[in-house]
């Protein structure tokens, strides 16, 4: 079996063994369900058959939850020393990073899969735009992958899980909100530069149902950069 997959499987079952997975699933479904169906600008007030409200809430929830699942990945292994045992097995540093990335992504995909009933319910209410909804899910997956990559990088710089969590959260907030805010303060090329760095803007563009190469390149480069930096960090020893 491919070592990357072996590591991904182990990490994923570690989430389910340690209850992290269950807490996360319940909290994620609880929060998104609550805000999608029950309160505020919920789905019934919009008078429109779509999942825009859910996508909005899910973005923020994932922004908060992903650092919580990525924080232990390298930080904990470095603190307990198990990283030494793992890296002296017949694997490369890259396989370890990819395996951990894959496990986190699968975890998020499982959480998202549990929201499919939302999709089915709403589509019963009227004519839903299937293209836009699927694009919205794709956008969530891409965005999650980017945050996981950032989270793994944050976990690779420290052996303290709390530091890893806070760093990942800060970087996430930076990409999600701050770049947008900074962008609105500038005009011309600086403004455009910052707004093109904003995660939310790229997510919106995908969730409108338009798959632009610009957005794919954006998410792809964050993922690759984060993973390469994580690999570089665990290579320093």
């Amino acid at each position: 079996m491919n070592p990357t997959w072996v590591i991904a499987k182990r990490e994923l079952s570690a989430y389910f063994d340690s209850m992290v997975a269950y807490i996360l699933l319940i909290a994620f479904l609880g929060l998104t369900g609550f805000f999608t169906w029950l309160v505020g600008a919920d789905i019934f007030l919009r008078k429109q058959v779509d999942l825009a409200v859910f996508f909005e809430v899910a973005q923020l929830t994932l922004l908060l939850f992903i650092p919580a699942i990525t924080m232990r990945q390298f930080a904990e292994e470095k603190r307990t020393g198990t990283i030494e045992l793992l890296l002296t097995k017949n694997v490369t540093d890259r396989q370890v990073v990819l395996g951990k990335f894959l496990s986190c992504l699968l975890m998020i995909c499982i959480a998202l899969a549990f929201t499919l009933p939302y999709y089915i319910s709403v589509s019963q209410l009227g004519n839903i735009d299937h293209g836009a909804t699927i694009a919205g899910y794709l956008g969530l997956v891409l965005m999650s992958a980017a945050y996981i990559s950032i989270g793994l990088f944050a976990s690779s710089v420290t052996n303290n899980q709390i530091v890893a969590f806070l760093l990942a959260l800060f970087l996430g907030l930076l990409f999600h909100f701050l770049f947008d805010m900074i962008a609105s303060g500038f005009t011309g090329w600086l403004g455009e530069l910052f707004s093109s760095l904003s995660m939310a803007a790229h997510f919106d563009s995908i969730s409108r149902g338009v798959l632009d190469t610009k957005d794919l390149i954006y998410f792809g480069s964050i993922i690759v950069l984060g993973l390469l930096l994580a690999e570089y960090n665990i290579g320093k020893r």
Binding site: A14, D17, S18, T80, G81, T82, L85, T88
Partner: peptide
Amino acid sequence: YLPEHNPLYHE
């Protein structure tokens, strides 16, 4: 390889 402090996945 058996490292010095025998690090293992305790869970």
